[in-house]
Design a binder for these strands. Structure first.
Lengths: 250, 250
DNA sequence: CGCATCGTTGATGGGGATCAATAGCTGTGG
DNA sequence: CCACAGCTATTGATCCCCATCAACGATGCG
């Protein structure tokens, strides 16, 4: 997926982006790079000078605590700018990691700032994107604080699916989602053993099929119910595409 | 506290705000309002047309789940703009509530947007503020996922104290913090009973004194250690004021 | 002074952590 | 093409942190 395609899909899913803005983004001095699985593209505590646009593959953000524990904070799909916050908060308070091998593009902060200052519409939509990022964090907090592991896991799958659907990365009722159970555990804040058992519970209930690479949702309505999932917090446009009764159109 | 004072302290703590920008903010059409304890200033699911600047008192943001559970997402102090995100995401995905009686000022979105478009410096600092809001969410996620209740509680107190210190609302090693144990429980995602016992543990260890109104930290170094607290994520300027060895200067 | 809110304590149970071991899977090199 | 190494998934057993239930003080306010 190239820059135009990835960004168009992404920004189009959350706001109204003009062709002029797209063109402006493409005029930026870009540096495309392929990074291997597990590589830290931005490290906790370091100061950054570029944002990163994900073109292909999967990335995630994480914090490693002093006792060695890992907490996954976010999962990112092509089209995302996972460390957009670094534009105005250049010191990283977490790390950005390539979950799988992936292709990314670096965008220098100063160039992006310059562009944003000349193009308030673009600035607004990027700001909005960073605010939706925060809305997802809030929902995760609520899930971690007030839901049992199985429901939380169900919610995680709902969110991943809807977000991927929003950028056209789903295929019917399934999508590519190469995450290990250890990864899911660190995202939900539970143990790998308990993750395994929660997965089985969802699987046995016929709500989800997941083999570490591909997620399939045989019964959206029931999964949504189990997870108490309400996509409002993703603040997507074209909400009708994600109507619970018609969630699988792409 | 008036508008100039509250905002100056707040924005000054996180970035470099020009006098021109302050003046511009003061020129906005403002509507000051007093709201009683427990009032919902902005409600989950509703569409807003104004942001809210907190002048006096305490506010918080929360999500009520379908099963009735409540998750506190953030606590706000004077100078904060608790629903700044509504500027570009006007549909609320949570509620903004007056924790205590408080005095607030409404700022119309369109006026603020207009101002931001004409004053990129102001826009950037507000954007930055909303990104720090998100950084706090990330830290809460890590605490909820990977820390036992006592440590999490200790961390909550550290964060509250440092944030209040940053806007000059602390007094030596203590500050006003009128929160019930039920509130703390809903913020940490634990039960009130367990909150009570965790509080006792901190108290008995001599790390914290807290009576529901006032927080006192007799031994900052040890509390910080217990909480594994690192203020980097608050992205404050003048970090020296919050050096662990000298945390109590105001 | 009566009621409501809030804090405290004890008892019991459960969701999930931890420990430990087995089995499957993937890639890599000989 | 096989053998091995390393990672990932799965399962069972045990334990503990924290939830829940229930009751009793304390505090404050009209």
């Amino acid at each position: 997926m190239n820059l135009t395609e990835a960004l168009r899909r992404k920004l189009d899913s959350i706001g109204n982006l003009s062709e002029a803005a797209i063109a402006a983004l493409e005029s930026l001095p870009l540096r495309i790079s392929d990074v291997g699985r597990g590589i830290e593209v931005a490290s906790d505590g370091h100061v950054t000078t570029d944002c990163c646009l994900l073109l292909e593959g999967y990335m995630h953000r994480q914090k490693i605590l002093r006792d060695g524990g890992r907490q996954i904070l976010a999962v990112h799909f092509p089209g995302d700018i996972p460390d957009l916050q670094s534009l105005h908060v250049p010191t990283m308070d977490h790390s950005l990691v390539a979950t799988t091998a992936c292709r990314i593009t670096f965008i220098p902060h100063d160039a992006l700032k310059h562009l944003a200052h000349r193009n308030p519409t673009l600035s607004d939509i990027l700001w909005r994107d960073s605010l939706i990022d925060a809305a997802i964090f809030r929902t995760w907090i609520a899930m971690m604080g007030r839901k049992p592991a199985v429901d939380h896991l169900a919610h995680f799958f709902c969110e991943a699916f809807v977000r991927m659907a929003a950028v056209g990365l789903t295929d019917g009722n399934s999508c590519h989602l190469p995450l290990t159970q250890e990864f899911l555990a660190d995202a939900l804040g539970i143990s790998t053993v308990h993750t395994n058992r929660s997965l089985q519970e969802l699987r046995d209930a016929g709500l989800v099929r997941f083999d570490g690479r591909r997620l399939t949702i045989p019964d959206w309505a029931r999964l949504r119910e189990k997870a108490d999932f309400d996509p409002t917090y993703l603040h997507l446009r074209r909400r009708r595409d994600f109507d619970p009764d018609q969630p699988l159109r792409t």
